[in-house]
Nucleic acid binder design. Sequence first.
DNA 1: TATGAATGAGTGTTCATTCAT
DNA 2: GATGAATGAACACTCATTCAT
Lengths: 189, 189, 189, 189
Amino acid sequence: MGRKAVYTETELLDATEKLLLTYGYDGFHLKLLSEHVNGARSTIYQYYANKEEVIAACLRRAMHRIMKKIEVIDETDSRQAIFDTLRAYIEESKLHQILSASNKVDTTQSDHALADMTFVKEGHTILKEQLMRIMLQAQQQGILRSDVDSLAVASVFFTFVNAPNMLGVTNEEWTHILFNMWLHGVGQQ
Amino acid sequence: MGRKAVYTETELLDATEKLLLTYGYDGFHLKLLSEHVNGARSTIYQYYANKEEVIAACLRRAMHRIMKKIEVIDETDSRQAIFDTLRAYIEESKLHQILSASNKVDTTQSDHALADMTFVKEGHTILKEQLMRIMLQAQQQGILRSDVDSLAVASVFFTFVNAPNMLGVTNEEWTHILFNMWLHGVGQQ
Amino acid sequence: MGRKAVYTETELLDATEKLLLTYGYDGFHLKLLSEHVNGARSTIYQYYANKEEVIAACLRRAMHRIMKKIEVIDETDSRQAIFDTLRAYIEESKLHQILSASNKVDTTQSDHALADMTFVKEGHTILKEQLMRIMLQAQQQGILRSDVDSLAVASVFFTFVNAPNMLGVTNEEWTHILFNMWLHGVGQQ
Amino acid sequence: MGRKAVYTETELLDATEKLLLTYGYDGFHLKLLSEHVNGARSTIYQYYANKEEVIAACLRRAMHRIMKKIEVIDETDSRQAIFDTLRAYIEESKLHQILSASNKVDTTQSDHALADMTFVKEGHTILKEQLMRIMLQAQQQGILRSDVDSLAVASVFFTFVNAPNMLGVTNEEWTHILFNMWLHGVGQQ
DNA sequence: TATGAATGAGTGTTCATTCAT
DNA sequence: GATGAATGAACACTCATTCAT
């Protein structure tokens, strides 16, 4: 019953994600969004109580997506696990930008938004813990140096992900290049 | 700006820079600025034709500042030059954030803003070229590996700068740690 | 309305009346109404062309209800008739609030609403005339003072009805108290 | 410095009061207000942070006005005091309508509005207490009947004020008429 | 020159009403 | 007939910019 929706929720969140990447949190407007999904601004309110809920839902979905990718990684081989993690993050490297909006989202007006952002925050913690666990294991297995603080190592790892792929190679290749630099450094042995 | 205003140009741009860091390009407002400076909002228009000009002037100054720091670096010792460059960028690491606003500035309404942003853009090029030059020299001197594309190396270098100093150590120490990781990698030799 | 709808007309108007009392004319929304009734907002339009018609129908029904109560009053005993009238109004004291919305209803868009509001307006007149008639009779019978303008007496009578029952007694008791004060005044004899 | 204001605060609040009377709390809009003071809607925000603050300021002023009138009443002669109180309330009878908006004002978004509404609420209490005090004194002095609950008496008194002056006489005369009815009742002695 | 005041454009949000299933 | 979906008009509020003192 009722007439056919002009766009699906997926389409809406896809558009949101794209706009969030392009314009950032503050540059994101519902008018902009409605123009990109071909519908009236007010229609959005049929599905989300306010702007924050739209953004929160988008961030949640993004976080959920990367967690799915990360949680299937086999941790037994630390070296491989780190590589897989790097690849996953590079594939979703835009996520870092999107999720950087997390701290701007106002969750005081909507329980829905609050729940979504709580999920995002917890996701952040889980991801970080998993990486730290793998790193530690790698250190113990003699794969990683032990003379560098693992927090520093992780910090650099997360930063690496954002290195712009200036060579324009495939994600797979770029992952190899970065992994190699991360592991062996750029200095002559 | 005349000699006796309610605030000096330096004060205004300092405040702008601080606010740009805290709230980002879109979160920055002249109302906000006027509240952080001793004067009325409308007074700003005595010195800058519009908001974009204020931001552009701020970005130009920031770019000028880092260029001053970079251009005095002695390039004869490549290794030391790279280290000095890294330190300079880390000291001014906030600049990256500020300058990330560059692509948002609307320069179509003001020649002044356009000129400033052109300066910023050229500065970007100059900095990048200098780094590439030093890198190349370092490769030739056998300090850096030659089997990695220098563009990738530079990309990673610029990214490194943004790694959050999670250890909370001094800039000097943090520079050493990052330089070490960048050069030797985090893997067991 | 047909025989098997999601809600009966009575239910709809009951809900309307309740909401009108609680939120007033301007605070009343069809969205609100649909939430208090088992059906969708758009379904309301199957039976009423617009919001004003709903309100008008509600006011008409309320007016009709009180007229039914008033018209059975036996006017032969003026004193008793006045008492009965007062009781009826007190029982339906909420009506005054509801009917105060009368002047806000926009009847220009709907003939139906116009007809209903005309009925309400005429009802007002009829009720007032009946009261005036009884009052006059009471004056002639020496029950009421003749030195006070009967218009003023009626004005006060209608106002009395709205006195909040601060004592929290039953309507019957409250009617007695008010009737007593109205008749004998509050001053020491 | 700065240019001349298009309207004074007094003019703004006068218009607010008038509109509040005409359209009620929910029917009051800032657009409406701006049209009645001949200025842009946004200009209002120079002086009040939001709509609620405008209304709260208006209610506060109204309350302040009536308190000024009431507090100068000499309470020594109870009968006269009651009469003076009645006259004051009748003169400001519109206030009752305006102040009935009190419970709708949202004070959660503005401290200013909260403070104003607190003032209004306290004013209500003070006024009521003063009336109760005078009534009690009048009862003790044998001016008022003692066999009627003073709460009921007060309730009726406050209601009286709202009786529409259907005779169209002056406030002074209308006060006399109402006072007479209130004191002696409308029944034949 | 500095500034308080005014304003219009733009965004968030709500709601009556219409559409199409 | 009932309804979910879509929408435009209306209003709250913010902010860059202009005006006039």
